[in-house]
Design a protein around this nucleic acid. Structure first.
Length: 850
RNA sequence: GCGGGCGUGAUGGAAUGGUAGACAUAUCAGACUUAAAAUCUGAAGGGGGUUGCCCCCGUGCGGGUUCGAGUCCCGCCGCCCGCACCA
């Protein structure tokens, strides 16, 4: 008997596919195209199970689509700029460029044995000058089209290392290396004007039918359109009125103070004049810039001494407070607080002893607010107290609209629509990224680089021994002639956010070697991505930025109008999780260890090398920064790629997180061996050998074709695999003749081929299949074989299953009812009486209500 | 804090509002074997009874809608993801 030996056969078939050029995508207008794309990896240095899972899913789709007559594009590349390369350079010397390209080489070699149907001829890395040069060209076109802006933005500032920190580098409000308390600081930055497209990006979500509803909802909430009232509070001291924006203008009679952000112009002015306020504002600026840090910080406030007049009652004066939880980025950076109907405002007012005024009550409960704000849904009817627009009983929605209408009529405010979405700050004070192609000229100001001078390449002679951006302190790189006047100018030393790199790579794959960012004919043919696959952690930023970029690329002539929404269908796979292994360094900072460096015993975990005790943090997202990645190469080495592929698909539903466990791999291998020995046995049968139950076997075969096809189409890979297990069991037990069994094993091989392509080729060849199974047409279920003559209906009594009857498939409903009432269990339950109700769902179920 | 999701046997999980636990892992029993491995066959949610059969309970917790709820609605609890400089 021929042995199942993946180490030999897998290489053989990979070479056969290469030789036949099966996966090289060529434009072919005569065939329908299908573009399947998995989110490209960051070259961390080794592939992990998350990659295997992600790329295997895409590969199943790619291979399946190819076998149903599609011209498939399935490319791969590297999201190669980013902080880990600089961190590695800081930690162990070396150069980010060498580190990155070495990692890419290693990971490519780790991916190839998986037998993915990737067109490697299109591969690129975002750190290739050929790629980022085109990205600089896009930047210049966007700049010219008015899609880019320059203005201040807040960053995390480490006052000891004198450097900007990423959010990830701020731990509990302190710098990760210096341990110094982080401050928020303003810096001049470049911005993509994505907020100009807020409405369009919001509305277009409706058309994304093949995106998960949860992702559309998350994006909708992120864009955050709101309708509210904008108006000014007159200052008692005659200063400029304070403009506020509120989504609850109906609660204006409950206003207890006016709050401004510590970054509000008034606060900044007071800061310069008043040391007490300067101290307070400095206190407010401590901590990181994340919304999370700001929202969860203890609420701080200080009375500015400024008083404003209530717009509805000039005799009513309100104090103006600076409060640390008010964001300058949202609305006008100033609010009025209504503590009775907002928990945060209430907590603040109780802390600082400010008044709490109820403006409405529940219809059945006029209890004044004490410690808990009364915040009913805006659609609930409530009883209003002294509402200036004359409302008595009305919903919040009605009251808001009435208030806006009244304010507009009386001329003291106007209804406006605002968005939570902010412009996208793209400047990064780091080396390992795409240089922003502009210069600063003493006489001409900010000047874009000329396109013929692109790419503006990164200098290689840099060091990372001191914190900060090496471009900033490079002796010569900054010096360049002004493209406008030719005089001495300085290059911009900021590089681009790596989200820029990943916002258009999908378009570049359609013409990866073009001398322009894209080639219209190729983009027109291959776009859009028919199926995009990636982690749900990208549900908002990456996908929103890509949607914006596709629009911007259309405006600047780099993509057709049809590609403005670049991803037709999106599938968000769950993450692969794994325990994290941590020790602490002398400063009690965490040091993360790779699973293979850790020995886990029942008594606890220790470092293999030193025996040091290791803390185990249970299952978290596999992440390069936490080193909790698992090396799939061990499995491929021991069992082959087909086993690894089969296992990652069978273990868990693809949209859900999966915790990596080694226990299933052995089982997957056993099963594939079993299929192979089945193939061997059937191959040895006399071709004319008759048997019993040919029809039953073929009927099961056609059902399996139907179920597996549906499973693949709907991303139910684990369910499809369950059907393949079941059919293998059926085939193994079948006594059918050689002809039927041979048809069954060939079909089984085809149905398995998207998941286990190598084994399937081997079976195909063994059974005398024509050509490569990778190029064979997908089997089609014979409808006639799927029809059942009779159907078994469960009988419920009061909703609980008690019995069942088998009836002809097309039996009349009335007949089924009659028959059901003669059932033993039904007769017993009725004990002579008549049922209250009899429900018959044809082909499904019978329920007798007693 | 805000936004989104998830929760089913020992384990991974299956189930268009219609027989809960498919398929698999681990376990146990049997066959084969001198023995073990491999392989094959079978058992199995929990509890109870009058045990060729029947009953009760059971999908995180508490309510609700429905002839019927793992699935829909409301309120909790727990875990996970995102929060704009991680990628």
């Amino acid at each position: 008997m021929a042995r199942f030996d993946p180490s030999v056969t897998e290489k053989k078939w990979q070479q056969a596919w290469d030789k036949a050029g099966v996966f090289t995508a060529k434009r072919d207008e005569t065939r329908p195209k299908y573009y399947v794309l998995e989110m490209f990896p960051y070259p961390s240095g080794r592939i992990h199970m998350g990659h295997v899972r992600n790329y295997t899913m895409g590969d199943v789709i790619a291979r399946y689509k190819a076998s149903t007559g599609h011209n498939v594009l399935h490319p791969m590349g590297w999201d190669a700029f980013g902080m880990p390369a600089e961190n590695a350079a800081m930690a162990s010397g070396g150069h980010p460029k060498d580190w990155t390209y070495q990692n890419i080489a290693v990971m490519r070699e780790q991916m190839k044995p998986l037998g993915l149907s990737i067109d490697w001829s299109r591969e690129f890395a975002t750190c290739d000058p050929e790629y980022y040069g085109q990205q600089q060209a896009l930047f210049l076109d966007f700049l010219e089209a008015g899609l880019i802006d320059r203005r201040n933005a807040t960053v995390n500032w480490d006052p000891v290392d004198m450097t900007v920190l990423a959010n990830e580098q701020v731990i509990d409000g302190k710098g990760w290396r210096s341990g110094a308390e982080v401050e928020r600081r303003d810096l001049t930055q470049w911005f993509f004007r994505i907020s100009d497209y807020a409405e369009e990006l919001l509305e277009a979500l409706e058309g994304l039918d093949n995106w998960p509803a949860k992702v559309r909802l998350m994006q909708e909430n992120w864009i955050g359109r709101s309708r509210g009232l904008q108006f000014g509070f007159e200052r008692v001291d005659g200063g400029d009125p304070i403009s506020v924006y509120t989504t609850r203008p109906d609660t204006l009679m409950g206003a207890s103070f006016v709050g401004i952000s510590p970054d509000h112009p008034i606060a900044k002015k007071l800061e310069a004049e008043n040391p007490e306020i300067a101290d307070f504002v400095a206190e407010c600026r401590k901590g990181g810039t994340t919304e999370e840090a700001i929202e969860t910080a203890p609420k701080l406030g200080m009375d500015t001494g400024i008083r404003v007049k209530h717009p509805l009652n000039p005799d009513w004066e309100l104090p103006v407070w600076i409060a640390n939880f008010i964001l300058m980025d949202y609305g006008t950076g100033a609010i009025f607080a209504c503590p009775a109907h907002d928990q945060r405002d209430l907590d603040f007012c109780r802390k600082y002893d400010l008044p709490v005024i109820d403006t409405f009550f529940a219809l059945d409960d006029p209890t004044p607010v004490e410690r808990e704000a009364f915040v009913p849904p805006k659609t609930d009817k409530v009883q209003w107290v002294n509402h200036f627009a004359g409302l008595d009983v009305a919903t919040g929605e009605e009251a808001i609209e009435a208030t806006i209408a009244a304010a507009e009529k009386e001329g003291w405010g106007e209804g406006v629509t605002k968005y939570r979405l902010r412009d996208w700050g793209l400047s990064r004070q780091r080396y390992w990224g795409c240089p922003i192609p502009v210069l600063h000229c003493p006489s001409c100001g900010v000047v874009p680089e000329k396109k013929e001078n692109l790419p503006v390449t990164l200098p290689d002679d840099v060091s990372f021994d001191i914190p900060g951006n090496p471009l900033d302190r490079h002796p010569t790189w900054r010096d360049a002639p002004c493209p406008k006047c030719g005089g001495d100018a300085k290059r911009e030393t900021d590089t681009m956010d790596t989200f820029v790199d990943s916002s258009w790579y999908f378009a570049r794959f359609t013409a990866p070697r073009a001398e322009t960012p894209t080639n219209m004919a190729d983009a027109d043919y291959w776009m859009n991505v028919d199926q995009y696959i990636g982690g749900v952690e990208h549900a908002i930023l990456h996908l929103l930025y890509s949607r914006f970029f596709a629009r911007a690329m259309h405006i600047t002539g780099h993509l057709p109008a049809s590609a403005r929404e670049p991803f037709d269908a999106l599938f968000t796979q769950g993450m692969v999780t794994h325990a994290i292994y941590v020790t602490r360094d002398e400063n009690d900072r965490p040091v993360y260890h790779f699973p293979e460096d850790v020995e886990v015993h029942e008594s606890g975990a220790r470092l293999g090398a030193t025996g040091e005790a290791v803390e185990i943090i249970p299952s978290a997202k596999m992440s390069k920064s936490k080193n909790n990645v698992v090396d799939p190469l061990n499995i491929i080495g021991a069992y082959g790629a087909d086993t690894a592929r089969w296992f990652v698909l069978s273990d868990s539903p693809p949209e859900r997180d999966v915790e990596w466990t080694a226990s299933g791999a052995d089982a997957a291998y056993k099963h594939l061996s079993r299929v192979w020995s089945l193939c061997d046995r059937i191959g040895a049968m006399d071709p004319d050998q008759p048997g019993e139950g040919d029809d039953d076997l073929l009927r099961e075969m056609h059902k399996t074709i139907r179920d597996v096809t549906n499973g693949i189409e709907s991303f139910g890979f684990n369910a499809a695999i369950a059907k393949l297990y079941a059919f293998t069991n059926t085939l193994a037990r079948s006594k059918a003749g050689a002809k039927a069994q041979k048809a069954a094993i060939k079909t089984l091989a085809q149905l398995m081929s998207p998941m286990t392509p190598h084994l399937s080729e081997e079976i195909w060849a063994h059974q005398g299949g024509e050509g490569l199974i990778a190029q064979a047409d997908w089997p089609v279920a014979d409808e006639a074989m799927l029809v059942e003559d009779s159907v078994t209906l469960p009988i419920q009594i009061n909703g609980k299953r008690r019995s069942e009857i088998t009836v002809p498939k097309d039996m009349d409903k009335v007949e089924v009812e009659k028959l059901a009432l003669t059932d033993k269990a039904v007769l017993k339950a009725l004990s002579g009486g008549a049922p209250k109700k009899l429900i018959v769902v044809p082909g499904r179920i019978i329920n007798v209500v007693i």
